[in-house]
Nucleic acid binder design. Sequence first.
DNA 1: ACACTGACCACTG
DNA 2: CCAGTGGCCAGTG
Length: 110
Amino acid sequence: MSKLENNFFEQVYAVVKKIPQGRVSSYGAIAQYLSAKNAARMVGWAMNASHQLLDVPAHRVVNRNGMLSGKHHFPGDNLMEELLISEGHQIVKDQIVNFKKVFWDPSTEL
DNA sequence: ACACTGACCACTG
DNA sequence: CCAGTGGCCAGTG
């Protein structure tokens, strides 16, 4: 991976870093904000790669249902859930409670 | 150089 | 309403 700033990955990281604490966003929302609607998968892939970078709060990014689809990719059993809970969220069945209320859409809020 | 995959989403039938 | 399918980009075998 290069250091190109126009890189899709870099764009994703930039947005994810801007997610306010206590809020969460979705892969699709980020992809849409980056004018790459159908590239939500890539956002997930970017997360996978960024997962090594401590700067990127990947736990604040979930799928469009507010489900912790990526929890299996975090170290430990339910680190992702723990992190979210520690930020004030409620998790039930790997899903964020009141997801719509804590949802943060870069297209709208940024 | 080719084919397949992936932490997804939206559109059909 | 549920199930199936295509589509996007980049990385890996």
